[in-house]
Design a binder for these strands. Structure first.
Lengths: 121, 121
DNA sequence: ACATTAGTAAACCATTTGGTTTAATACAGC
DNA sequence: GCTGTATTAAACCAAATGGTTTACTAATGT
C-alpha cells in the first residue's frame, strides 16, 4: 500500500529550507530590531550592537543568522564589517504570506460560489 | 534587592511577543504545510496528520503552536477537534514585512532627497 | 458493556537556540 | 613595533524545540 509517491519526501525542498531560515530569522525581536535599524542605513557591528543590552558576540551571532537568511549582506571595509539590508528576501517572505492569503481567499471564494450554486440549483 | 518596579522589564512589548510567536510558527515547514492544508478547508487533527511522516502527538504539538500564534482556531465537535485557519494573524505578518519594506524604501527616498537637496544648495 | 476512534498528557531525548565569557585575529593610529 | 579598536572563534550553559513512546481521557459504534 501507499506506493512511494512524490510526497514520500525524498527531496529536502530547498524552498522550504529557505523559508525556514527566513521566518526563523524574523522570529526574534532583536533580529527584527536590527533589520529596522539597518533600514535607516548601513552600519558596522559595534554600532548596531550599541542599543542592545547584550554582548557584542551575541549581536554578531544574530547578524550571522540574518546573513544566513539572506536578509543582510556584509562588506568588510578595513576592520569594520559594514552590514546592509538585503530586501530581495524580505520580498520572499511577503510573497509567501500573500500567496497563502490569496489561496485562502480563493478557497473561500470557491466555497461561496459552491454554496451559491447549490442554493441556486 | 533591586526593588521590583514595573519598569524592570522595560516593556514586554506585547507586539514583539506576538510577532515572535507568529514568525516562529511560520518558521517550520510542517506548520506551513499544515496552514496550506487548512487553506483548503477545516479538518480534524488526525486528518491533518495523515500526510506527514510523523506521530500524531507531534502534529498535535505543531497545531498547538499554530493556535498559540493565533493562526489556527479549534472547535471541539464531539471527539474531533475541527481546526480552521485564522487569517487575521497572517495579515499581521504581512503587514510587518510590508511596513519594513516601506520603511526601507522610504529611507532610500529620503536619502535621495537629501542628496538632491545638498547638490542643489 | 466493550472495543474503537480522536485526541491530549506526560516523560523522555537529542539538537538547536540565545546568551555568556574568555581568547584570538586583523586592521589602524601613534 | 606597540596599543587600541572591530570583530570573530571557541567553549560553555540553560532553556526551548521537535521529535519519540507510552499512557490516559473522552466520545462513538456495535
Amino acid at each position: 500500500m501507499h506506493a512511494a509517491t512524490a510526497t514520500d519526501k525524498p527531496s529536502p525542498e530547498p524552498e522550504d529550507e529557505r523559508l525556514d531560515q527566513l521566518f526563523h530569522a524574523l522570529a526574534d525581536r532583536t533580529r527584527r530590531a536590527l533589520l529596522t535599524r539597518l533600514a535607516q542605513g548601513d552600519a558596522g557591528v559595534t554600532a548596531l550592537a550599541e542599543p542592545f543590552a547584550m554582548s557584542l558576540p551575541a549581536v554578531s551571532k544574530h547578524l550571522r543568522v540574518l546573513e544566513g537568511a539572506g536578509l543582510v549582506s556584509r562588506t568588510v571595509e578595513g576592520r569594520v564589517h559594514r552590514c546592509a539590508l538585503e530586501t530581495e528576501r524580505l520580498w520572499e517572505a511577503e510573497q509567501w504570506v500573500e500567496e497563502q492569503r490569496r489561496f485562502w481567499q480563493g478557497s473561500l471564494d470557491s466555497l461561496a460560489e459552491y454554496v451559491e450554486a447549490r442554493e441556486d440549483g
